[in-house]
Amino acid sequence: MNITFIIASFVAVLATIMAITRYNLIHALLYLVISFLSIAIVFFVLGAPFVAALEIIVYAGAIVVLIIFVIMMLNLKEESVEQERIWFSRKVILGPSILSIVLLGELIYILLSHETTALTTQAVDAKSVGLSLYGPYIIGVELSGLLLMSGVVGAYHLGRQKKKVQHRFLENQTT
């Protein structure tokens, strides 16, 4: 199992690095899917099979597909890739990378500075997750439902292509 976890982790990190350095959006998304899949394996290793399934279905499936649809709708040309290449310069990467790696160093330092207590990890199956979802976390579920609802309404409202509205006095002048 350990080996599986390490391999999956490596794949996840590598795939993510590839995803964030691609110039082409579709390529990036494909690497992202790989990253999500490997993280699903990590979940499985961690004893969370239900969530691993959700990761594949929702993240790798639904969300990425949604993004791909949008990219298709935007109908991006070759120039956009060139544009990405121009934007992706070494100078731009340096500062944020240093800052972020400082942050990472601190996170790892925090993780390492706590001694690990030997507790056996056991699998938490879908049933117990379902029980706590509809038990103590029922309010959270309701709120999630509301959030999804507002997401749907917001997406519909924002995504509608509106006619350009001009003021009625200006209308006469332009026509």
Binding site: V58, A62, I63, G151, G154, A155, L158
Partner: peptide, 13 residues
């Protein structure tokens, strides 16, 4: 997950 789904839909819009 729920939050990410909602966020992606609104964000894409």
């Amino acid at each position: 997950l729920t939050m990410a789904a909602a966020e992606v839909s609104v964000g894409l819009a």
